[in-house]
């Protein structure tokens, strides 16, 4: 659906994007992550047509993305609206700018506000809304015209835990029929929503993390043992740098080299430790991300 090829962007004599290549499939939900200054927001601004770019191309369905503005919904990092407008007026304004009939927008507004958790707030002025409420209104304007591609820049940054939870549910519903690109640096928020993460650093895509796959850490072994007797003896073993007690029957062995499970069982048996289950430690997304970013 989206193909970005060798995209370059310079801002104030500084190269922000240095040959971005990526693709996003139809109905895929992709997270865009990277440390601050990686170029995520610039990439998003190029994709939405806010910024032009020097080299490369961004294509949607094989056509320049500029021709698909009607198909894109966008929520910026800093959400604000005309303070004097009511929620209703704001949505009417953006709906009409998207080429929708006034009557159609008016009909959609109550459902839309309910969907983003602002039901009954249609006559509230923007200046009366909290930061979180403005964020929700931002989402409402982004999905108002049923876009095929939804681009969200830090959508949960100013939401409280309840708001985040509601937003996650909304994303889950939207991803059934919409392609979503979410820029974030809080992986906890999008962990369950995104199918894949694109990692950016210094204006380049440095890798992908498939959130459906399990990421194992072969330098850490999780053991469930019958009892903790003789466990301390493992500390004497040269392969094990540390032994962590996680629960009355669970320990985590760490080393500086990758373990072979067979050898770990042998070492335990040698110390008369009865192993019930054994497996490599699963890394969470944040760990995988930090490792990828710090490696390059």
């Amino acid at each position: 659906m989206i193909i970005i090829d060798n995209l370059h962007k310079t801002l104030e004599n500084r190269k922000i994007l240095k040959g971005i290549n990526l693709s996003i499939a139809e109905n895929e939900c992709v997270g865009l992550i990277g440390p601050n200054g990686a170029g995520k927001t610039t990439l998003i601004k190029c994709m939405t047509g806010i910024l032009s770019y020097e080299n490369g191309s961004i294509r949607m369905d094989s056509q320049p993305i500029e021709q698909h503005k009607k198909d894109i919904g966008y929520l910026s990092q800093y959400t604000d609206f005309k303070a004097w407008m009511t929620c209703r007026e704001s949505l009417l304004f953006f709906g009409q700018l998207s080429g929708l009939e006034k009557k159609l927008v008016q009909k959609r507004i109550p459902t839309l506000l309910e969907e983003v958790g602002l039901f009954g707030k249609d006559h509230f002025k923007v200046e009366q809304l909290s930061g979180g409420m403005k964020q929700r209104l931002g989402v409402a304007q982004a999905i108002l015209h049923n876009p095929r591609l939804l681009i969200l820049d830090e959508p949960m940054s100013s939401l409280d835990p309840i708001g985040r939870n509601e937003m996650k549910k909304l994303m889950e519903r939207l991803k059934l029929h919409t392609t979503i690109l979410i820029s974030t640096h809080i992986l906890d928020d999008t962990g369950e929503i995104c199918d894949r993460y694109i990692i950016m650093k210094n204006g380049q895509v440095i890798g992908n993390i498939n959130s459906q796959l399990q990421h194992v850490d072969r330098r850490k072994v999780l053991l469930q043992v019958k009892d903790m007797k003789n466990i301390d003896r493992l500390k004497m073993h040269s392969d094990f740098e540390s032994v962590q007690f996680l629960s009355p029957h669970t320990i985590l062995l760490s080393g500086d080299k990758e373990f072979v499970l067979k050898n770990v069982i042998k070492a335990c048996t040698a110390q008369s430790i009865e192993v019930i289950t054994i497996g490599f430690h699963q890394k969470d997304l944040e760990q995988v991300f930090i490792e990828m970013v710090s490696e390059i």
């Binding site: 601004k45 966008y74 700018l97 931002g138």
Partner: peptide, 9 residues
């Protein structure tokens, strides 16, 4: 950020 909202339409 209003400008961004308008120009993405």
């Amino acid at each position: 950020g209003m400008q961004d909202f308008i120009l993405t339409r």
